[in-house]
Write a protein that binds this DNA or RNA. Structure first.
Length: 434
RNA sequence: CGGGGCGUAGCUCAGCCUGGUAGAGCGCUAGCUUUGGGAGCUAGAAGCCGGAGGUUCGAAUCCUCUCGCCCCGACCA
């Protein structure tokens, strides 16, 4: 993409409304623009990152055996009356009426809708297990939206719902998602740790929050150091028993600030790490909480009706854009992990209009490919181009100036390390092809 | 939902206390000079001062109401 034609409204100054670093950088780097409190428009660069995140989430969900669907944003209140949540949910739920005065709502979550789909389609235990997910916009009318996209009212979320014959089978579904989450966050370039979460009235040990570590994170976490170095499971066969992997990850001490245990922590000694983090995922087994009141049953092997056991598994996709920035930035801007970067390379023409420099850039742009390169061909001064490119945080920069071109070299800069080296055009191309 | 703060040009802000009809920097437009880390000069365009009501000869400025946004706290992917 040529920057001269790209809609990328960067800001030199920080808008007054943004307090935390990811919010500031998202506005300054032209990723989003605020529409109303907690509601944002995604501009091309921000949207590109979000789509890359979404795709990684999708691939790992599919790999774990979940199937993608798309449920509506606007839901009928009647379903929520069945589950009893229409009254219970409170003011966070945005309630609306259509022209016939029918009660509708903008979905804050989708348990009712998916349970309704399930009960109308599935009759036999032979159709289990089933795990359906979608990536869809949600709306929760937070009293106080803040931190930009990290705590918006409208947000993009992946939510999966599993259906099983009994709790033992549900545990396997749960474990599949647990492992998929470990892999997903690792692929996004994040260090994420699972924390045992409060299961409320249901009890049991089947609820975990996934916290991404970032120095500027809003919550404090305490955990065993070994958790941070644990290798991510590779080549997992999701049909085998995953309990050993889950046990391995949950056997080490890890707790959120409000649940931490100072006695256990003092036993850890040097192995204790206190860090800050951002919640980006939550997995939860809730048994028959919705299937029972809504009549989601299957015929079991013995011919009896069985109320299915369910779980739900969320990932905050739009929040992850902010979370990744919180975890990966410096004073000059964003540093995108390669896996989510909107472009792989930024090509800087330091002297647009200079025939030799233009020609060198055109050739590089053509060879590297417009889909992988953001080419700054604007008639701006070099300084402005450096500043913008650092701000938007593409992993690599190829800097082409008239002096270098005369010598047959360009400069290759790694955004994360800041390391720059003069290399021949050919070797720059070779390096970036990796 | 309790407490606090702020709405003046696209952005950051001054002016408000002590009423007299609007300013700066950046950005934008044009020209010239510049050209490897957000250039310089010149000339421009750009705001019914969030909205409504009131006080006053006169309101960005004082009063009342209202809308919006931000921050702290309680709650959440």
């Amino acid at each position: 993409m040529r920057l001269s034609r790209y809609f990328l409204p960067t800001l030199k100054e920080t808008p007054a409304e943004a307090q935390i670093v990811s919010h500031r950088l998202m506005l300054r780097a032209g990723l989003i623009r605020q529409h109303a409190a907690g509601i944002y428009t995604w501009l091309p660069l921000g949207f590109a990152v979000m789509k890359r995140i979404e795709q990684i989430v999708r691939e790992e969900q599919n790999r774990a055996g979940a199937q993608e669907v798309l449920m509506p944003t606007i839901q009928s209140a009647d379903l929520w009356r069945e589950s009893g949540r229409y009254e219970a949910y409170g003011k966070e739920m945005l309630r609306i009426k259509d022209r016939h005065e029918r009660d509708l709502l903008y979905g804050p979550t989708n348990e009712e809708v998916i349970t309704d789909v399930f009960r109308s389609c599935i009759r036999s235990y032979k159709d289990l297990p089933l795990n359906l997910y979608h990536i869809q916009w949600k709306f929760r009318d937070e009293v106080r939206p803040r931190f930009g996209v990290m705590r918006g009212r409208e947000f993009l979320m992946k939510d999966a719902y599993s259906f099983d014959l009994d709790t033992a089978a549900a545990r396997h579904s749960y474990n599949q998602m647990f492992v998929a989450y470990l892999r997903t966050f690792a692929r996004l370039g994040l260090k994420a740790i699972p924390l045992r979460a409060d299961t409320g009235p249901i009890g049991g040990d089947m609820s975990h929050e996934f916290i991404v570590l970032a120095e500027t994170g809003e919550s404090e976490v305490h955990c065993h150091r070994a958790l941070l170095e644990k290798p991510i499971p590779e080549g997992v066969d999701y049909d085998t028993d995953l309990q050993p992997i889950v046990d391995d990850w949950t056997g080490l001490y890890a707790a959120a600030d409000e649940m931490h245990d100072t006695a256990k922590e003092s036993e850890l000694g040097d192995a204790l790490v206190t860090a800050r983090g951002i919640e980006v995922g939550h997995i939860f087994h809730f048994g028959t909480k919705y299937s029972a009141p809504m009549g989601a049953t299957v015929t079991g092997p013995d011919g009896e009706a069985v109320t299915v056991a369910m779980g739900s598994y969320g990932i905050g996709v739009s929040r992850l854009v902010g979370a990744i920035i919180e975890a990966s930035h410096d004073d000059t801007g964003i540093i995108w992990p390669e896996s989510v970067a909107p472009y792989h390379v930024g090509l800087l023409n330091l002297k647009t209009g200079d025939a030799a420099t233009d020609a060198a850039c055109a050739s590089l742009y053509e060879t590297l490919g417009p889909d992988r390169v953001l080419y700054d061909d604007r008639e701006e001064r070099a300084g402005a181009k450096f500043a913008d490119m650092d701000l938007i945080g593409l992993p690599w920069q190829v800097i082409v100036g008239p002096k270098g071109v005369a010598k047959g070299v360009v400069e290759l800069k790694n955004r994360a390390t800041g390391a720059r080296e003069e290399v021949s055009t050919e070797s720059a191309l070779a390096r970036l092809a990796e």
